[in-house]
Simulated assay, not measured.
Amino acid sequence: MEEISDGDDLFELGLVNSLFALQLVQFVENEFSITAEREDLDINNFCSIDTLTAFVLRKLSTPTEPPLGHGHAAD
């Protein structure tokens, strides 16, 4: 088996199909306690180790809930 690098496109290499991609999304959501929104379901987020890592890091750094209040101290 040929070695792959973190930047190789797993779909282009034929290592991943659409069914596996759905399983991968579910695994990533469960493993990192994140939610892949509709706009996140872009093959470019999941086609390589590098793009998947960037996706997870981006989701982990994005607040999941808006901050409470309007930036003013509580009365």
Rank of each mutant, 00 (worst) to 15 (best):
S48R: 01
L60D: 02
H70E: 12
V56I: 07
S18P: 10
K59R: 10
F20P: 04
I43N: 04
E3L: 10
L41F: 05
E65W: 01
E65I: 05
V16H: 04
R58K: 07
V16S: 06
D6G: 09
S33E: 14
A54K: 07
I43F: 11
F55S: 01
S5T: 12
L10N: 11
F55T: 02
F32N: 09
T53M: 00
R38V: 04
L22Y: 14
D75K: 02
N30K: 11
E37K: 08
I34P: 00
E31C: 08
S33L: 13
I34Y: 02
E3S: 09
A54I: 01
G14F: 13
Q23G: 15
N17L: 08
L13P: 14
S33F: 11
C47W: 14
G69C: 05
A73K: 01
L10Y: 15
L68S: 06
D40E: 00
T53E: 02
F46Y: 06
N30C: 08
F27R: 11
I34W: 00
R58G: 06
N30Y: 07
A74W: 01
F46C: 02
N17D: 15
E39L: 09
V28G: 06
E39H: 07
F20Q: 13
V25I: 11
F55V: 00
N45M: 04
F20M: 14
D75T: 03
T64Q: 07
I49N: 06
G14S: 10
N44E: 10
E2S: 10
F20E: 14
A54W: 05
D42K: 04
T51V: 03
T51K: 08
N44T: 04
F11E: 11
T53I: 01
I34V: 07
L52W: 07
N30L: 08
S5Y: 14
A36S: 13
N44Q: 08
